[in-house]
């Protein structure tokens, strides 16, 4: 086992551990920190997939923007230490386990049976080509997403303002 493979296994374990913390921890702030761990693990996996630009974007957008937003929402939504713990009844736990494990076993069987027809050529896509594709082939979806983000920001501000006026 060479060092690269060792680091790769560490990244996979980090992703898995973060996901488990996210769904199983008792408080929402721990769940958010588990999400951060998962994001960093996935950024490492992107590096192994020859996509360093995506790894940077993963850390910038998810860890830097979305998680901070979630942290502010957690802080604004009241004191959580007064709430009951996250896990509810045993029946709900069993039902969730059955649903998730059933769907996952279905996908697992599909994944193991299918041969994906993996290409033989060497993968060498640079950041330059991503930028070229964004402004050439995918120019319209790119602009539409910027429009979507503007609309969502205005919508969030409007929601906050309207509820303030109601009081």
């Amino acid at each position: 086992m060479n060092p690269a493979e060792f680091v790769f296994i560490f990244m996979v374990l980090m992703t898995a551990a973060g996901a488990l913390i996210t769904v199983l921890s008792g408080s929402v702030i721990y769940a958010m920190l588990g999400l951060v761990t998962t994001m960093f693990g996935i950024a490492g996996l992107y590096v192994y997939l020859n996509a360093p630009f995506l790894a940077m974007m993963q850390i910038l957008i998810y860890v830097g923007a979305i998680t901070i937003l979630i942290a502010f929402a957690i802080m604004l939504a009241g004191p959580f230490y007064k709430r009951p713990r996250e896990w509810t009844t045993t029946g709900k736990l069993v039902a969730s386990l059955i649903v998730s494990l059933f769907s996952v076993s279905l996908f697992f069987k599909l994944l193991m049976k299918t041969s994906w027809g993996e290409g033989k050529e060497v993968f060498a896509v640079t950041t330059k080509e991503i930028g070229r594709a964004l402004f050439d082939r995918y120019a319209l979806p790119f602009e539409l997403i910027s429009l979507l983000i503007v609309v969502s920001i205005i919508g969030a501000i409007m929601l906050a303002l309207l509820s303030k006026g109601e009081k």
């Binding site: 898995a16 996901a19 769904v23 929402v28 996996l45 996250e86 509810t88 969730s96 998730s100 996952v104």
Partner: peptide
């Protein structure tokens, strides 16, 4: 398989967690 594990955890979390923020996560 890593993506599948994340999907499994996400579906489990949506069904299992109580608060809306945890479901969003």
């Amino acid at each position: 398989l890593v993506g599948l594990f994340l999907l499994c955890c996400g579906v489990f979390g949506i069904l299992y967690r109580r608060t809306l923020i945890a479901m969003l996560i």
